[in-house]
Design a protein around this nucleic acid. Structure first.
Length: 754
DNA sequence: GCGTTACATATTTTT
DNA sequence: TATGTAACGC
């Protein structure tokens, strides 16, 4: 095992101290870009190479497969020797592995399937039907959120305290939902964690086994752990206490998924002797970017302040740019990238565009498409969420786990084979009567044909369809040992005429078929993998894992997906009240803090250049909406910025100037007028009105027919002007560039005489 | 049972 | 916008 101590020489003092800390509970608080992964990787190398710990005794846990993969590769390149048995994986994959191994102690078999969100929804809908509950009143999504929150806190269905009426409903659904999961031989994502904790608590000898196995446990992104995950770690580390946690509370952005950065404090309480290391030197960003980011995060109340520094002094100022609408925002991005590339300042692939919500990607994508430029998109409608993919995976899942009724329900009539609601109902009753699952009944029909004891019940077209479906299912099951996953997939597609079903001659159909081929490719790629392994891999991939470094094109991604990444040039779009911070965070201070951290995460992704963009008007659903500039923009000191954003200070100046023109005490009136004026544009907005309800001028500054001059567009004629959300929206026909819609507060329009 | 259409409805982030 | 569902006619 080659480990050269001089490897440590490449670390700075803080990093080296953290890497060589003596075993025991350890906390590394790592600022952005401070070499967090580097420390983890070197720590593993140090344990193996210097302390002689066997790789199989080490467990490293991450949140994404990508992070796990990166860590593995980097450890391998540090240590030339064998790393056989080293466990690096996501919480979910590690847990799934443990559960399969210990299936004998569980209500499921080792072949259990993992239900994703769509499967969960389908199951909850089934529960609602069973319990005769209205799914309008209790939407599956809401119920699942509650159930998930309970699971993350390790609250089982029985302990769920109903309290309220709604709570009582949730409890009943939760109870039945868990029963159905077990009947389907399935776990949902949360179960993977919860069930491991339960397993450990119920079978101390099982826990002991894993405590002995994993002498050293390392955790990445510790601030994102939830109660269940922390509980699992604590149990595993109870005897040896070698728990090495790396994280940054300032980058905690998954609270809505149960993550609780207070686990960092809990850790310090639970292990009073824990050593704490701070990594404050940043190797990523320029000092200007770092200063701006710190200005934003420093307004976060109740946090331990880190003093980040870098040797990358200077750099260019951040650009805060305000435009009329989101299309202009997108165009600005394209123009800016084009300019930078032309000037030799960066490559297109160096650039990233980050947004709060996936829906925002559309406008940007369209602009790229219009400009004929390539881009990479992380996440969004993830590949594995596509209908055609889910269909085929459901087939595979059903072959693997015949108890999977959600999968069966999905495919029994896809492609349509004449099995409708009525037949389905019949099937259910018949199966129940015979004490079988529906799949077992179908297999019986398929295998025994006319001799099946159910043959008399299912005749005619439906009977034939079910018989043939059952026959195919039996064949697939029989061949699954002898054939690759890709081979099985081919056979299923063939037997079901799936290609004809989706490939209907339209462009969309071709695309769907291409997706099927891609799935087949993914299956063929890791050819010798078993069906079970394939299904698990597929169930646990995430959006983040789809990021490719291959092509030389700008990357579009959500701020959440950006965590852990870095780019020379970063654009953050939608810096508007209501978008970032998101509307949903307005009345909850904790959520608002999280929005701030999200902004911080985004800003600290940038190495050299950071563009902060906002639009006065933004499309939302079908209509459009106006908003004020994000409060986070106001937190950045003026001297770090260039650009044209109208910050709050200057806005309040104009407030005083115009004060006389406002209709002071009668705010309601002003609002009513705005709402009426907004009329056709479905002005659902909030932010502008909520934060500055009294800033609405009552008369338009510009009138139709006026001649105006614009510094950029030249002369034109006002076509129309109206008041909207505290500003004035002017349509102008310019001689040079045609019709433009402008915001009066931004467009320095000069009224010309005559 | 299937396919079309009209209509309502709900929109954050995702391992 | 886009997605799902209820209602309709075949």
């Amino acid at each position: 095992m080659a480990f050269r101590m001089d490897i440590l020489a490449t670390l700075n003092e803080q990093q080296r101290a953290a890497v060589t800390a003596s075993p025991g509970p350890t906390l590394v608080l790592a600022g952005p870009g401070s070499g967090k992964t580097r420390v983890l990787v070197h720590r593993i190398a140090y344990l193996v190479g210097h302390l002689g710990i066997a790789p199989r005794s080490i467990l490293a846990v991450t949140f994404t497969n990508r992070a796990a993969r990166e860590m593995k590769t980097r450890v391998e390149s540090l240590l030339e020797g064998s790393l056989r048995g080293l466990s690096i994986g996501t919480f979910h994959s590690i847990c799934a592995r443990i559960l399969r191994r210990e299936a004998a102690h569980l209500p499921v078999t080792a072949d259990f399937v993992i239900y994703d969100e769509a499967d969960q929804q389908a199951l909850v809908k089934q529960v609602l039907r069973e319990l005769n509950l209205n799914d309008k009143q209790y939407t599956p999504g809401r119920l699942l959120n509650k159930i998930s929150a309970a699971k993350n806190e390790l609250i089982g269905p029985e302990e769920y305290s109903a309290g309220t009426y709604v709570g009582e409903i949730v409890k009943r659904v939760y109870v039945r939902y868990q029963q159905l999961l077990a009947l389907n031989n399935a776990y949902d994502f949360d179960d993977l964690l919860v069930e491991v904790v339960r397993l450990f608590d119920t079978y101390p000898d099982v826990l002991t086994k894993y405590q002995r196995l994993y002498e050293h446990i390392l955790v990445d992104e510790f601030q994102d752990t939830n109660t269940a995950q922390y509980a699992m770690l604590k149990r595993l580390a109870r005897e040896r206490r070698n728990l090495y946690c790396v994280g940054d509370p300032d980058q905690s952005v998954y609270r809505w998924r149960g993550a609780d950065y207070r686990n960092v404090h809990r850790f310090q309480q639970d292990y009073p002797d824990a050593l704490t290391f701070l990594l404050e030197e940043n190797y990523r960003s320029t000092q200007l970017i770092l200063d701006a980011a710190m200005a934003v995060i420093d307004r976060h109340p109740g946090r331990t302040r880190k003093q980040l520094f870098t040797e990358r002094g200077g750099g260019v100022k951040l650009v805060a740019h305000e435009v009329y609408d989101d299309q202009e925002e997108a165009q600005f991005i394209i123009d800016t990238i084009a300019g930078l590339v032309r000037g030799g300042d960066c490559e297109p692939g160096d650039c990233a565009i980050m947004y709060r919500t996936n829906a925002q990607s559309r406008v940007v994508e369209e602009a790229f498409i219009r400009a004929g430029l390539p881009y990479k998109l992380v996440g969004a409608q993830r590949f594995y969420g596509r209908k055609e993919i889910k269909d085929l995976l459901a087939y595979l899942r059903l072959v693997h786990n015949p108890a999977d009724s959600v999968g069966l329900l999905r495919v029994i009539n896809t492609p349509p084979r004449g099995v409708g609601a009525k037949t389905l109902e019949q099937l259910n009753t018949a199966a129940q009567g015979a004490g079988l699952t529906v799949t077992q009944l179908l297999l019986d029909l398929g295998e025994n044909g006319g001799h099946s004891r159910f043959a008399r019940e299912f005749t005619g077209r439906a009977g034939a369809a079910l018989g043939s479906f059952g026959r195919h299912l039996a064949q697939w099951q029989a061949m699954r040992e002898d054939v690759s996953v890709a081979g099985l997939l081919d056979r299923i597609v063939d037997d079901t005429d799936y290609r004809d079903f989706i490939n209907d001659g339209t462009e969309e159909g071709m695309e769907r078929w291409a997706n099927v081929l891609e799935l087949r490719g993914a299956a063929a790629e890791n050819g010798d993998v078993s069906l079970g392994e394939f299904l698990e891999q597929v169930a646990l991939v995430s959006d983040q894992d789809t990021l490719s470094e291959a092509s030389q094109a700008p990357t579009l991604l959500t701020l959440h997906a950006a965590k852990g990444l870095e780019f020379p040039v970063v654009f953050i779009v939608g810096l508007d009240e209501g978008v970032l911070p998101h509307q949903r965070s307005f009345d909850d201070p904790e959520s608002m803090h999280e929005e701030r951290r999200l902004m911080y995460v985004g800003m600290t992704r940038a190495k050299d250049r950071l563009y902060l963009l906002r639009a006065f008007r933004r499309s939302v659903y079908g209509g459009s909406d106006v908003a004020e500039a994000s409060r986070f923009l106001d937190d950045i000191p003026e001297h770090l910025l260039s650009g044209n954003v109208d910050r709050r200070q200057s806005r309040s100046e104009s407030y005083f100037k115009q004060a006389t023109r406002w209709d002071g005490g009668r705010r309601g009136d002003g609002d009513a007028r705005i709402a009426r004026d907004a009329g056709n544009s479905r002005d659902t907005n909030t932010a502008a009105r909520r934060r500055a309800p009294d800033m609405n001028p009552v008369v338009t500054q510009y009138k139709a027919g006026q001649r105006v001059n614009h510094p950029q567009f030249g002369e034109g004629i006002v076509i129309h002007s109206k008041l909207i959300g505290g500003d004035e929206e002017v349509d102008v026909a310019f001689e040079a560039v045609g019709l433009k819609r402008l915001a009066a507060s931004l467009a320095k329009l000069e009224i010309l005489k005559g």
